[in-house]
Simulated scan of single mutants.
Amino acid sequence: MRNYATAQLTGTRDNQCDATAVFTDRRTGARAYVLLDGIGSTEVVREWTRAAARRLARTAARRGDAERGLRAVYDAYAAELGGYGPSAVAVVAVTVPGKPLTIAWCGDARAYLVADGTAHKMTDDHNLRRVIGGRRNIVTSWLGSNLNDDKVKYRFGHPAIESVSLCLVAKTVRLLLASDGAYDPHEDAGHDLANLLTGKPRQAARRFSATAVKESLAASHAGGDPDNPAEPYADNSTVLVADLTA
């Protein structure tokens, strides 16, 4: 029985440029859960982001570690694209039987763990809000960049890639990966994320994504499309929900 589900809504954008992927290494049982949020809203970005999500999931699962997988793909795209071309922010979580859960990210896609009715944010956004209290939609690290850890840290105070590793204590923990179009509206509205993530993974994923778009369109804080404030605006809203066992 599958332990995860995804949900996506395009919002008011021209293309759905978020992507998810899951890959299991049959040799080791390692499984990678990936979410990418493409930067831009074109068909080129959409197709690249989908391929990049699959590539990252395969690499992270085969390496059995989120950070090692993300660094390998980050470095590969830096060499292939030279910092020019499509790009996306990324978050990846990897489970390996008998080993700690690992999570790694570049950009502002997030990972949460829900246990005992509480959602815990496991990532720290790579954006100007974190760096200087500036705009949260300007990211400071992304897949497709050619800046290494030292250069990113010099400019923004954090490395290109960050990671966490932890042993699951609760018998069952729910993992949430979310694009900013999915988590920002809930955060702005002060919603309890754990309450939105109840039920089966598919129900939770659909509820979380759909409510985010409705909140974006209805809430006064959205204010409309940044380029045309008279028009209602909702970003791509994508989530991946998975139940992990200790």
Rank of each mutant, 00 (worst) to 15 (best):
A88H: 00
H126Q: 03
P97A: 02
A230M: 06
A218K: 10
D225W: 11
A115N: 05
I132Q: 12
A170T: 07
R130T: 13
T42R: 06
A182K: 01
L177R: 08
G64K: 10
T123H: 08
P159M: 04
K171N: 11
R50H: 00
Q8L: 07
H126N: 04
A76Q: 14
G117E: 02
N3C: 10
L166G: 05
L197K: 07
V44G: 00
D75E: 15
A219D: 03
R129A: 11
G134P: 04
P100N: 02
A30P: 13
D180Y: 10
S220D: 13
L35Y: 15
D188T: 09
C167K: 05
G190C: 10
A178T: 08
E43L: 10
Y33F: 15
G85S: 01
R55A: 12
P97S: 03
M1K: 06
V94F: 00
W48M: 00
V96I: 01
T118E: 14
A57V: 08
L244F: 03
A79K: 12
S41D: 15
H186F: 09
K153R: 12
D150G: 01
K153S: 02
A104R: 01
Q203C: 11
E43V: 11
A205K: 10
R129G: 02
C17D: 05
M122S: 04
Q203Y: 15
P86G: 05
D37F: 15
A57C: 10
D108F: 11
A66M: 11
D192P: 09
G64A: 09
L193V: 14
G134H: 11
D124H: 14
L196N: 09
P229N: 11
A7H: 12
A5S: 14
T10L: 14
A222Q: 15
V92G: 00
S237A: 15
E187N: 10
G69N: 07
N195M: 15
Y233K: 08
Q16N: 13
G144W: 03
H158C: 07
E162K: 03
T123G: 11
V73C: 03
A242P: 06
A78Q: 09
D125R: 04
L240F: 06
S216M: 04
A79N: 12
V44M: 01
T20S: 14
G223K: 15
S87W: 00
P185E: 08
R136H: 13
R2K: 09
A205F: 13
R50G: 12
V114Y: 02
L168V: 01
R13S: 06
G223S: 15
T6E: 14
D75K: 02
R27S: 12
V239Q: 01
A7T: 02
D125G: 05
A61L: 05
A234L: 05
R135D: 15
R46N: 04
R71L: 13
I103D: 02
A57T: 08
H158W: 00
A222R: 15
A242N: 06
Y84Q: 07
A104W: 01
R155F: 03
A111G: 10
N148M: 00
R58P: 04
P229A: 13
C17Q: 13
T28H: 03
G11V: 05
A189S: 14
R46S: 09
Y74M: 12
V169M: 01
L35V: 15
A78Y: 08
G224P: 15
R13L: 07
R71N: 08
